[in-house]
Simulated assay, not measured.
Amino acid sequence: MALATWWRTDLLPALAPLPTFSVQLSDDRELIARLAHCSPRIIDARFEAGDRLYLAFMDEKPAAYGWVTTHKGYITDLRLTFALPAHNSYLYDFLTLPEWRGHGIYPRLLQAIIRQEESCERFWIGYRPGNEASARGMSKAGFQIICDLVVTQSRASGLILFEQSEHALASSGVFQLPIVATESSSR
């Protein structure tokens, strides 16, 4: 799983406006459970933990969603849990509904979250291997893809940095994993 970050000192690229696009915080548990095809108990647990849900709309219809946490992040599949430092947030569980894919909603949703989460200085997000649409959307939004998780026996065990930048080096402290290698990459 590759990881990316955006910091307040980074450029936020201009994206052409989508005329009927809007983003808002939501606590509509039934709607998100339906959109995400998951149990309302999972949604309730996220809200109880203090996580926030952002919904993107096109023509006032739900088009995409994503979650923000500022205290504790997790990547369940890789048995990784990490406490976030102050002023950091982890963005997770994003989905653009199939009928809205290809319209540039994902990078605009990411930028809307950055703008609305004013107390956060650093944003972190990941994407699964092979999900090039997510990688492109993150890059369009201004995120730098900085490292990859090393997985050993289905567990995250370290980081491979794509660069020796301050952003990449900070990932070790955020995800509480050792840096095991640095690779030269044209990312």
Rank of each mutant, 00 (worst) to 15 (best):
P62N: 07
S185R: 11
R8M: 01
V174R: 10
L97A: 03
L3H: 11
R34W: 01
E132W: 08
V151G: 09
Q116D: 14
S139W: 05
L11A: 13
L91Q: 09
A133M: 00
Y92A: 03
S26K: 08
K140P: 04
P98W: 03
S39P: 04
S134C: 02
H103A: 11
M138A: 02
M1F: 12
D10P: 02
Y65S: 02
S172H: 09
L109K: 10
Y74C: 09
R101A: 03
Y90S: 07
N131R: 05
R34I: 02
A135D: 00
D51C: 02
A170N: 12
R115V: 03
I114L: 06
L18D: 02
I105V: 15
G142K: 05
R52N: 02
C147H: 02
S165K: 06
K72Q: 11
Y54G: 11
P85L: 04
A112H: 08
G137Q: 01
G126V: 02
E48M: 12
S171P: 07
H167V: 07
V68E: 05
P19H: 08
E60S: 14
L18N: 02
E132K: 09
A49C: 03
L31Q: 10
S89K: 04
F143M: 08
I125W: 09
A16E: 14
E48F: 09
H103W: 12
G66P: 06
H103N: 12
E99G: 03
S186D: 13
P13E: 03
M138C: 00
G102M: 08
T152I: 11
C147T: 08
S139H: 09
N131T: 05
A33V: 02
Q144S: 15
E117S: 04
Q144M: 07
E30F: 05
A14W: 10
I145G: 01
E60R: 11
I113A: 07
F143V: 08
T20E: 14
I114W: 07
L31R: 03
A156M: 10
K140T: 09
V151W: 05
V150I: 15
E118I: 09
K140C: 01
A170I: 07
F94W: 13
R29P: 03
A2D: 14
Y92L: 06
D93E: 12
T152C: 08
L97Q: 07
G158T: 05
F82R: 05
I42F: 15
S165E: 05
L55R: 10
A4R: 04
S119V: 10
G126Y: 08
E121G: 10
A156G: 08
E48Y: 06
S134Y: 06
H87S: 10
V174G: 04
D148H: 13
E166V: 15
S184V: 12
L95N: 14
P107I: 04
T96K: 05
E118M: 04
S22N: 08
Y127M: 08
R128A: 15
R41E: 15
D93F: 04
A135I: 00
G158R: 06
K61W: 00
R128Q: 15
E166S: 13
V23F: 01
T96P: 11
A181P: 00
R136N: 03
P85I: 01
N88I: 00
I32L: 10
E60P: 06
R52E: 11
T152V: 13
Y54S: 11
R46E: 05
F143R: 01
G173P: 06
H167R: 15
T5E: 03
E183K: 13
S139E: 10
C120E: 07
L169Y: 07
C120A: 12
R79Q: 15
T81S: 14
T76C: 09
K140D: 02
Q144C: 06
